[in-house]
Amino acid sequence: MTYDYTIHVLNKLPQNNKLRLHCASGDDDLGTHTIDVGYDFHWHFCDGWTGRTLFFCHLYWGSKQIAFYVFRSKWAYRCWLDCYWEARSDGIYFSGKNPPGALEKKYDWHT
């Protein structure tokens, strides 16, 4: 059985700050995008029966950046068909549903 997932990466930085991101898997390169505050960059995919799907994103905000996995098949239980990530000024937050419930800080920015 396969499931259809949606990954969301939302720019929740302070007003007038753009977020640049590049997301990809081993099979799909989603390209580099620059998104405004409040914008939700999202995509859909079907997790294959082999259970080896992996997506990562590299986020850039000014001189700060971070690269991390946004989906791994073995994490599927953490995402109720949606993985929701927010880029904020103090780091990257996660919720396993959309609309998100309480978000948990997962990563700090690197300089």
Results as ranks from 00 to 15, higher is better:
residue 86 E to H: 00
residue 73 S to C: 06
residue 4 D to C: 06
residue 23 C to M: 05
residue 22 H to C: 03
residue 17 N to E: 10
residue 10 L to V: 15
residue 7 I to F: 04
residue 1 M to H: 11
residue 64 K to A: 12
residue 90 D to G: 06
residue 61 W to M: 04
residue 103 L to H: 00
residue 84 Y to G: 02
residue 100 P to Q: 03
residue 18 K to F: 07
residue 87 A to W: 04
residue 58 H to E: 14
residue 27 D to C: 03
residue 79 C to Q: 02
residue 82 D to T: 12
residue 98 N to Q: 06
residue 57 C to S: 07
residue 62 G to H: 06
residue 6 T to Q: 05
residue 4 D to L: 04
residue 82 D to Q: 03
residue 39 Y to H: 13
residue 70 V to T: 13
residue 43 W to P: 07
residue 14 P to L: 02
residue 43 W to Y: 14
residue 108 D to E: 13
residue 5 Y to K: 01
residue 3 Y to A: 12
residue 19 L to V: 08
residue 22 H to D: 05
residue 4 D to G: 06
residue 23 C to I: 08
residue 46 C to S: 13
residue 21 L to H: 03
residue 10 L to Y: 02
residue 39 Y to W: 13
residue 48 G to S: 14
residue 52 R to M: 12
residue 66 I to S: 07
residue 106 K to P: 00
residue 2 T to G: 02
residue 99 P to Y: 13
residue 62 G to D: 10
residue 45 F to I: 12
residue 10 L to K: 07
residue 6 T to V: 14
residue 54 L to N: 03
residue 92 I to K: 00
residue 24 A to R: 09
residue 35 I to V: 15
residue 98 N to C: 08
residue 9 V to E: 05
residue 70 V to I: 15
residue 110 H to N: 14
residue 28 D to A: 05
residue 21 L to S: 02
residue 80 W to M: 14
residue 36 D to N: 10
residue 88 R to L: 08
residue 104 E to S: 11
residue 13 L to M: 08
residue 61 W to C: 07
residue 79 C to T: 09
residue 26 G to L: 05
residue 39 Y to C: 09
residue 16 N to F: 10
residue 31 G to P: 01
residue 3 Y to S: 07
residue 11 N to R: 01
residue 77 Y to K: 10
residue 76 A to Y: 07
residue 19 L to F: 06
residue 105 K to I: 14
residue 92 I to Y: 06
residue 88 R to G: 07
residue 71 F to L: 05
residue 103 L to V: 15
residue 88 R to S: 03
residue 56 F to P: 00
residue 4 D to F: 05
residue 76 A to H: 09
residue 47 D to A: 11
residue 77 Y to G: 11
residue 49 W to A: 12
residue 47 D to L: 03
residue 30 L to V: 13
residue 104 E to D: 09
residue 65 Q to K: 10
residue 104 E to F: 11
residue 89 S to M: 09
residue 83 C to H: 00
residue 100 P to A: 10
residue 24 A to Q: 09
residue 81 L to M: 14
residue 51 G to Y: 03
residue 3 Y to M: 08
residue 25 S to D: 05
residue 99 P to K: 09
